[in-house]
Design a protein around this nucleic acid. Structure first.
Lengths: 138, 138
DNA sequence: TTGCCACTTCAAGTCCACTTGAGGTCAAGA
DNA sequence: TCTTGACCTCAAGTGGACTTGAAGTGGCAA
């Protein structure tokens, strides 16, 4: 198990040290200890950070990502939560698919008004679906 | 050209009136006039709001969307940018698929450590594939 | 032993996208 | 005429995700 310090993790992951500290505070990543003052991390944290970035780019909040990834490496958390997240991701995938197709259509179609195009409108409607819009509590 | 007031637009679009005012201030939508105090909008504004939602879910900022949508109702976006964005979304979809499958696997697999599970590892590796992510300027 | 300096903590600041609150106004109905 | 109520303006507040700043600390080279 390779140990790396925060600077090295920042370098490898591209995530600023300040963000790594912030993520640790939020419980998204975990440092294994200190060497002097400095946090040390498992080199695998790089992978976890990629997952976090992925979740972010999919529109999940840090709290949601924390739920999905679980504490440490063992997701013994309620399997129902995992399945719920999987469902949400599935809907996101669907929405993103429509979005991607909509963008491609907009790029390809020379028509002055996409708003009139049934294909584009249908895709837009799917893409704009308000999936997990509830902010307060689910 | 059907005119509707802000309450009606809010109802049809699902976007709160406060947000509609905010969007108007930002130049994202335009009201055609007033009836008394009340803003009136073209009913087509609903479409435009869908486009705005579309852009938001694609990760564009409101300022970027304002630039893209211009004054008309149809997107006036650099096609190359659209295609690039579509590609990016496509990769995200691919990775999200792996993440979703990974979560489902984690929910189903009784193994004590998913980190050791080849299936899980393979999925997470796909999910964690990094996309070069520049922030700030596009 | 000293000095450097990247790290540390903690609080406050920033940016974005809204939302809320206070006080005001218009059109219509009692 | 007066009241009502949904809208109005403008300013300040909120929440998420970080970032920055000030002051402190420990390992390492000289």
């Amino acid at each position: 198990m390779a140990l790396i310090d925060i600077a090295e993790l920042a370098r490898r992951s591209g995530v600023p040290a300040s963000t790594l500290r912030f993520y640790e505070e939020k419980g998204l990543i975990e440092s294994l200890g200190r060497r002097g003052l400095r946090r040390t991390f498992d080199a695998d944290a790089v992978e976890r950070l990629s997952l976090i970035a992925l979740g972010r780019s999919a529109g999940f909040s840090l709290d949601e990502i924390a739920d999905m990834l679980g504490d440490g490496g063992a997701p013994d958390i309620d399997r129902a939560i995992l399945l719920t997240k999987a469902e949400e991701i599935d809907r996101t995938i669907h929405r993103l698919g429509a979005l991607r197709d909509g963008l491609r259509h907009a790029a390809a179609c020379p028509a002055p008004s996409h708003a009139q195009c049934p294909t584009f409108r249908r895709l837009m409607t799917i893409a704009a679906e308000r999936t997990r819009k509830a902010k307060g509590k689910g």
